[in-house]
Amino acid sequence: MDVNSVTVFEREGKWIVALVENGEKTELDFRNEEFARNYAAGQSKRLSAPSHHRSSDQQD
């Protein structure tokens, strides 16, 4: 992963936004995919980081 990155994926019926900021990872979960993607877009802009979307079967 990049030093700063934003990733959105589905896990167990929830949408996860995984943020990496200065090497520190944080995950937030959302019930709604649109909310997760909108939050991720804002964080991507804030962090000047690429935003990645992956399918639920691609786990770290």
Rank of each mutant, 00 (worst) to 15 (best):
D2V: 10
D2F: 08
D2P: 02
V3T: 08
V3Q: 13
V3C: 05
V3K: 13
N4T: 05
S5A: 12
S5V: 02
V6C: 13
V6H: 02
V6F: 06
V6Q: 03
T7C: 06
T7L: 12
T7D: 05
T7K: 02
V8K: 04
V8I: 07
F9W: 11
F9S: 01
F9P: 00
E10D: 14
E10Y: 08
E10F: 03
E10L: 03
R11S: 14
E12H: 15
E12R: 12
G13P: 09
G13E: 10
K14A: 12
K14Y: 09
K14F: 10
W15D: 02
I16A: 02
V17L: 08
V17K: 05
V17N: 05
A18T: 07
L19C: 13
V20Q: 05
V20C: 06
V20E: 06
V20K: 01
E21G: 08
E21Q: 15
E21A: 09
N22C: 11
G23D: 07
G23R: 09
G23Y: 02
E24T: 08
E24R: 11
E24G: 01
K25N: 01
K25L: 05
K25A: 03
T26Q: 09
T26Y: 06
T26E: 06
T26F: 11
T26G: 01
E27H: 02
E27D: 08
L28W: 07
L28G: 10
D29P: 00
D29F: 10
F30P: 00
F30G: 00
R31G: 08
R31W: 01
R31C: 00
N32E: 00
N32S: 05
N32A: 03
E34M: 03
F35Y: 07
F35H: 12
A36V: 03
A36E: 04
R37W: 01
R37M: 05
R37F: 05
R37Q: 04
N38C: 02
N38R: 11
Y39C: 02
Y39L: 06
Y39P: 00
A40V: 00
A41I: 04
A41Y: 07
G42F: 00
Q43F: 07
Q43N: 05
Q43W: 09
S44T: 01
S44R: 00
K45M: 08
R46P: 03
R46E: 09
R46K: 14
R46M: 08
L47T: 03
L47H: 06
L47W: 07
L47A: 04
S48C: 13
S48E: 13
S48A: 14
A49G: 14
P50K: 10
P50G: 07
S51L: 15
S51C: 14
S51W: 11
H52C: 11
H52F: 15
H52Q: 10
H53K: 14
H53P: 10
H53Y: 14
H53I: 12
H53G: 13
H53D: 14
R54M: 13
R54C: 12
R54F: 09
R54A: 05
S55Q: 12
S55R: 10
S55H: 14
S55M: 12
S55F: 08
S56E: 15
S56P: 07
S56R: 13
Q58G: 13
Q58N: 13
Q58A: 15
Q59K: 13
Q59G: 08
Q59R: 15
Q59L: 14
D60Y: 10
